[in-house]
Design a protein around this nucleic acid. Structure first.
Lengths: 237, 237
DNA sequence: TTTAAAACATGATATTGGGCATGTTTAATC
DNA sequence: GATTAAACATGCCCAATATCATGTTTTAAA
């Protein structure tokens, strides 16, 4: 469990809201939403929820970065998706009243709002505009999953790794230099997204480094040649 | 385009409805839905819609079987999902007003209802109960896609092929003998779901045949030893 | 019925990438 | 600061599987 914050951020003034499903709510609805939530902080590495658990509420990332993963076969982890500020988590399990479909772990210290389950089931679910946004959100997630699936099925590890770096850049962006990825992931985590062994991920990152496609600065990854990275990823659309 | 049927089946008396999202509608709503649809027949191999196209309506399978696939890299096909009677198709593109996310092709002669786009956007989308069913439907599809993704990422071809046969059985069931899969897929189509080469799919199906796990009767596949097939698939949940 | 074209089958070969081993660097803990 | 553990790095080997080649069977078309 995260540590509950005394001064929770107000939905009405939340910066993350603009890119979230809650952007369709009016001020009155936002005030109401605000009344039915708490906000907790999570340390890097901490679980927000676990795929064994039943949903207790709707999570919405206020600040921070979360990885969504599932435990596959022989306990091997598969990273399914990366989430950022404004994104809602755990809504599928909540709506279907099932166990979480995956686990959510903080990639850095994060603060996350938890919207009351009863409020969700009695009010949010009745709001048509919001529900349409949720359908769009799931649809988008499904499209991403399908793209990921096709890559895993048809591309080699080198292409998938390049694609993963582009995905990370697209999700979390870069720091001020406009080239260094704005997140710290271990080689193992990258491998768990790419669907390869940690050794292969390390090996290929080294190769990209030698080929001047990227520069490895400790755990930070700087994209030196974006065009070449895109070419290496062999994207077709 | 499919051939429009003169006597379209009535939603109110549709057998497929029980397992569809439309089961939450009352009789009046069903009558209304019925007024805003047409029904067309599609021959085996015919496209229902193509991933290049913009959505013209909401498809709902009345009878028949449909494969949902996407063209990956170097034109290689990836089968994403298999759909049966009662399932709706093309709803994501419709809601997000984007091109279809995948292509739909008839696996056998099928009849499919097409619900008017305007009616969908003006009426269906306003029906909260129905919208919740749609969220559940997308969530379920996403869960299936994620499971498929993890298998592609972590399992070997033999395990994935066994899993594919179990998936086909779970989707379309068996004929009267309770063992022969109730659909005809080419080896290439199976390979395109499993994410392997056609040769490997053929080879492994032959192996399963020799090992008495299945029996190959022309294009029909009969499951002889379900327990062994489940074991071969190496399922963990 | 003949012919052509798919689909299926199987062997031989090449390649990718996983797994192991071993060493080095970085980070965490006392 | 010393000690330990985790993460990173790289070489070697081998199994899994893709690709190529060739032949057979089935299906579709003329």
């Amino acid at each position: 469990m995260g540590k509950i914050l005394e001064n929770k951020p107000a939905c009405l003034y939340c910066n993350a809201r603009i890119h979230s499903v809650f952007n369709v709510l009016d001020n009155e609805e936002l005030e109401d939403l605000n009344k039915h939530k708490t906000c907790s902080s999570y340390k890097k590495g901490q679980y927000v929820f676990n795929e064994q658990g039943m949903p207790s509420g709707l999570f919405c990332i206020n600040t921070g970065k979360i990885k969504l993963s599932t435990t596959g076969f022989d306990g091997k982890e598969q990273i399914l998706s990366l989430a950022k500020e404004g994104e809602i988590l755990g809504y599928r399990a909540l709506i279907s009243d099932e166990r979480y479909y995956c686990s959510a772990v903080a990639l850095e210290d994060s603060s996350i709002c938890i919207i009351d389950k009863l409020y969700f089931n009695s009010t949010i679910i009745k709001n048509n505009k919001l529900l349409i946004e949720i359908v769009k959100k799931v649809s988008g997630d499904l499209k991403l999953a399908e793209n990921h699936l096709v890559s895993l099925s048809q591309k080699n590890v080198r292409e998938r790794l390049a694609e993963a770096l582009l995905f990370i850049k697209a999700t979390y962006g870069c720091v001020e230099d406009g080239a260094t990825l704005n997140v710290t992931l271990s080689r193992e985590e990258i491998a768990d997204y790419v669907g390869t062994s940690t050794e292969s991920a390390i090996r290929l990152l080294s190769e990209f480094n030698h080929d001047k496609i990227i520069e490895l600065i400790g755990k930070k990854i700087k994209i030196l040649n974006l065009q070449l990275l895109i070419k290496t990823a062999n994207l077709n659309d």
